[in-house]
Write a protein that binds this DNA or RNA. Structure first.
Lengths: 193, 193
DNA sequence: CGTCTATTTGAATGTACTCAAAAGCGGTGG
DNA sequence: CCACCGCTTTTGAGTACATTCAAATAGACG
């Protein structure tokens, strides 16, 4: 399967020689998943850190009232998964499933450990990935705390235009922290203007 | 000033020889700040990544209605600051100020670049710091999206008991994403039971 | 003390939720 | 190709959680 996009991602931050490239790609498990398929289930210990080559995934939390809350959508070029479970090898509170037929590269936990040990320059790559992701999460937190549902919906559409083709409205509502019914009403109000 | 706690933090993840220890600590600017003092102001480009040796800081965002939103409280052993501004050298949307007289160690942006270049094992340290912080932010997002104000307040008290001594209720309200008035009413209800 | 800020209280209001039901839409099988 | 089924989206009425505004009370600090 296609390792072009992940290598491009890595090379934005570190340079790799042929041997390193070969070694790195040998650790990745290329996998096809179909729409509605799960890559990880909640309750189970997360096995993989997941890179999306094509398609679209979502990682989400299901609360005690059986309401879903989307932590992240991931399209081409994004990493996703449950970092807490992956890092600490404890049961996951998240599940990750495909919103469209997708191609992913799975990095098993042990192989990531090996990679970082044998080829420490990947520390820089993941440091940068996590740092950027942290910034994104802080921005989202600010948005959630300070903006109305309508403002958040508008901002979401502008920030992630490519997701509209994959993501049902009810999951966008979930990501925004509102009910599908209320998102529908927000959209109505926007249309009426 | 005391570099014990920051060295302990670093040594949890990587080991340093004397030369590395010496070099690392030489980059840090020990600074005392008094309650109400600012370390960084919004609108200005963030100069430092901030490590708290003692006391307590808060990093917060002020929205268009002049309402503050706390991104992070930082007590002994925590890093804080505006990563987005620090990383991209763009004007900050956050400010960081002291909630109590505090001692901090400031790591200037350029020195962090030098450190990571000359002593790449620090990539691992910061990768781990950011990874853990990301997990914390994801948990908080989940909480904010799925729990009521009362549940969040209770969880906050359990997770950060040490903060109660430093942080005025209005900032806890801000962190939880509610108004001070409503937090007061939540507390009343809890007392009445 | 007196002043300034933080916290509490109460009434009116608003934003978003719940529940129930209808309408829309896509896929599948006869 | 159409009819049906299941799931998503919309609509509406009633409700709940949280906000706003105004004012009183309590605390902290010089």
């Amino acid at each position: 399967m296609n390792t072009e996009t992940i290598l491009a991602s890595v090379r934005r931050y570190i340079s790799l020689n042929d041997e390193e490239t070969e070694y790195f790609t040998s650790l990745l498990l290329p996998t096809r998943v179909r729409q509605h398929d799960f890559i990880e289930q909640n309750g189970e210990t997360t096995k993989y850190f997941i890179y999306v080559t094509s398609g679209c995934l979502m990682t989400y939390f299901t609360d005690k009232d059986a309401t879903d809350h989307v932590i992240q959508f991931a399209t081409t070029g994004w990493w996703t998964g449950d970092l807490a479970s992956f890092t600490r090898q404890q049961p996951s509170i998240y599940a990750t499933k495909a919103l469209a037929d997708s191609e992913v590269l799975l990095l098993p936990r042990k192989e990531m450990d090996n990679l970082l040990e044998k080829c420490p320059k990947f520390e820089k790559y993941f440091r940068t990935i996590f740092q950027n992701s942290l910034i994104t999460h802080q921005n989202r937190l600010i948005q959630t705390l300070s903006a109305t549902a309508e403002e958040r919906y508008t901002a979401f559409g502008q920030k992630y235009p490519s997701l509209e083709q994959f993501v049902p409205l009810k999951y966008i509502a979930s990501y925004l922290g509102i009910t599908p019914e209320f998102l529908s009403k927000v959209r109505r109000k926007m249309m009426d203007r």
